[in-house]
């Protein structure tokens, strides 16, 4: 048995594939690639696929991770070659290796959020008010959670979940780079952060979100 962690990009049209659909698409892809898959035991055997940090619908990423379990070892280059051949171009595998850090060690994710405005002045104004909001550290967001069986809406403070941010504007666009809490214990969806900023600073014409890296607690890349 061998575990392999595949890194892949989810760009372009692939942002419209939900996480559930992505699992289905990947499980079909690994079958098309004829990998020596290890199957779960039990009534409905299926290949073991594990996504350490699912990506919300509508966001792009160049650093997604997928763990596969093989019945017998296969050289990572061979696996990479076979997966590339069967995946659509907007789901591109970039690396494959035996994992050396666990999913629990994901501490943060780095994002690039591009916002487009009507003109340079609007972009500049937005950038300024966003900067002061982020500096003040008082942003909150409403999140639906569960308390037992009940669905509840709770307000969460965002500042403790924002580890780093940087704003820059160029022409009519603003670029917000941020490292946000990620992983199974605490996690901030960048769309939630943007929504909170839009509530106070106004909405852009359009925006896009790109996840660029997964980070460990010491700030090094999670691989």
């Amino acid at each position: 048995m061998q575990n392999i962690r595949v890194r892949f990009e989810k760009r372009g049209r692939a942002v419209y594939i939900s996480h559930l659909d992505l699992m289905r698409a990947m499980s079909r892809a690994v079958r098309r690639a004829q990998l020596p898959l290890w199957y779960t035991e039990g009534f409905r055997p299926h290949p073991y696929l594990f996504f350490p940090l699912p990506l919300p619908l509508g966001q792009e990423s160049c650093c997604e991770a997928l763990e596969l379990r093989l019945e017998r070892p296969m050289p990572p280059e061979e696996l990479l070659r076979r997966l590339t051949a069967v995946l659509p171009e907007d789901l591109k595998v970039t690396a494959a290796a035996e994992p050396w850090s666990g999913a629990g060690e994901i501490h943060a994710a780095q994002y690039e959020m591009k916002l487009r405005f009507a003109d340079e002045a609007a972009a500049g104004d937005w950038s300024k008010s966003a900067a002061s909001l982020l500096e003040a550290g008082k942003l909150t967001a409403k999140k639906t959670g569960k308390q037992g069986r009940r669905r509840i809406e709770k307000e969460i403070a965002l500042a403790p979940l924002i580890f780093h941010w940087a704003l820059s504007s160029e022409g009519a666009s603003v670029l917000l780079k941020a490292a946000l809490a990620a992983g199974s214990t605490q996690n901030l969806n960048p769309a939630l952060l943007l929504e909170a900023l839009f509530d106070h600073a106004g909405e852009p014409l359009s925006f896009s979100i790109l996840r660029t890296a997964l980070l460990r607690a010491d700030g090094t890349a999670w691989e």
């Binding site: 372009g12 049209r13 692939a14 419209y16 098309r32 509508g58 659509p88 907007d90």
Partner: peptide, 24 residues
Amino acid sequence: ALAQLEPLLRQVQKPGRYTGGEPG
């Protein structure tokens, strides 16, 4: 072009219906 469709895709249910690009 996908660029024309893009802003619409974010406003509809099941945008995957309209993107194409499936394997096969």
